[in-house]
Amino acid sequence: MTVSTSKGCIIVTGASRGIGAAISLGLVRAGYTVGCLSRSGEAPQVEGATEADRSQWFSAKCDVSRPEQLKEAFSDVVKRSGQPIVGLVNNAGIHSQGRVENIAEAEFKNVMDVNAYSVLAASQVVYPHLLENKGGLIVNIGSFFDKLGIKQHLTYCATKAAVAAMTRCMAVEWASKAIRVLNVAPGYIQTDFNREMIEKGPLGEFLSKRIPAGVPGNAQDVGQLVTSLFVLNSPYMTGETIYIDGGHGMLQ
Rank of each mutant, 00 (worst) to 15 (best):
L232N: 14
G26F: 07
A60L: 10
L120A: 06
R210Y: 13
A43M: 13
R168S: 12
L70Y: 06
E240G: 00
L229Y: 03
Q190A: 08
T167E: 05
N115C: 03
L120R: 07
I244N: 02
N91P: 01
E173V: 07
A92Y: 01
T167F: 04
K151N: 14
V231F: 09
Y188I: 09
Y117C: 13
V114K: 07
A21G: 03
V126F: 07
Y127D: 05
P202K: 12
G98L: 02
G41V: 04
A164F: 09
L251K: 15
P44G: 12
A106Y: 08
M250S: 13
G187K: 00
P216F: 03
F58M: 05
L154A: 14
C36R: 06
G136A: 04
I141A: 01
K147Y: 10
I198M: 08
S118V: 01
S59F: 08
A30E: 07
R54Q: 14
V12L: 03
S228F: 12
N140C: 06
G14R: 05
N183I: 00
A21E: 06
A165C: 10
V222I: 14
G31C: 13
R66I: 12
R168T: 10
S81K: 09
G217W: 02
E107V: 08
E107S: 08
I244P: 01
F108S: 04
N133I: 09
N233S: 10
T33G: 15
V231M: 10
T227V: 00
A73M: 06
L154C: 12
S55V: 06
K134V: 08
N102M: 11
I94H: 00
S118R: 01
G246C: 02
E196P: 02
S4F: 11
C157Q: 09
K200D: 10
I141G: 01
S40R: 01
A106E: 14
G249P: 02
I211Q: 00
E199Y: 00
A175W: 05
Y156N: 13
K151A: 15
Y156P: 10
R195L: 11
G82P: 07
M237E: 15
S81C: 08
N183M: 00
A219Q: 12
L131T: 04
H248N: 10
L70K: 08
R168L: 12
V111K: 04
Y243I: 06
V172H: 11
G142M: 04
E205N: 12
I94K: 03
L130N: 06
Y243F: 10
C157K: 02
A178F: 03
G201Q: 00
L37G: 05
Y156D: 13
M250Y: 11
L37K: 07
E199C: 01
V100N: 04
T159K: 06
G26V: 05
M197E: 15
S123N: 10
H153V: 02
I198P: 05
D53S: 01
S55A: 15
K71V: 03
K209P: 04
K200H: 12
G87Q: 06
S176L: 10
L203S: 09
M112T: 13
L37C: 07
S143I: 03
G35D: 10
Y117R: 14
